[in-house]
Amino acid sequence: MVIPPTPVRTAAEYRPLRGTPIQISVTSEQPHGRACIHDAEESGALVPAGHVYTPTSGSPLGWPVVAHPQCIEETAHVEH
């Protein structure tokens, strides 16, 4: 049995379309819009969800991110 490697995670600041920026860790798929920013799942419908900013040796690098509509809805209830 082959066990897939654990995805490498990177520290980032997540700035949702609405709400307060928070510090999170992201997989390599999330900043490229290939996985939900909230649950890291790659399947299902994904919609724009804001940006993450990853550290570099200079200014942070911004990436547009996506999320499942239900994840955005669930997080909106937590933040308010």
Rank of each mutant, 00 (worst) to 15 (best):
M1D: 11
A45C: 02
V26H: 00
S28H: 13
P60E: 14
T6L: 14
I24G: 01
G62N: 02
T56C: 08
A35H: 01
Y53G: 05
E13M: 13
M1I: 07
G50Q: 06
S57N: 13
T27Y: 06
V47Y: 11
W63Y: 15
R9G: 04
V47W: 10
P55M: 14
A67K: 06
A35C: 05
G44T: 09
V8M: 11
D39T: 09
E13Q: 14
G19W: 01
V66E: 00
V78G: 03
G44I: 07
L46D: 03
V26N: 00
V26K: 00
V65T: 04
P64M: 03
M1A: 12
L46M: 12
S57E: 14
P69V: 04
T20R: 04
H68F: 01
L17V: 09
G58C: 06
P5G: 06
A49W: 03
P64E: 11
E73W: 05
A40N: 10
Y53R: 15
P69L: 06
I22W: 06
H77M: 08
G33S: 06
A12V: 08
W63I: 04
T6V: 13
A40I: 01
H68S: 04
C71A: 03
E41W: 00
Q23C: 12
P4A: 13
V52D: 00
L17D: 13
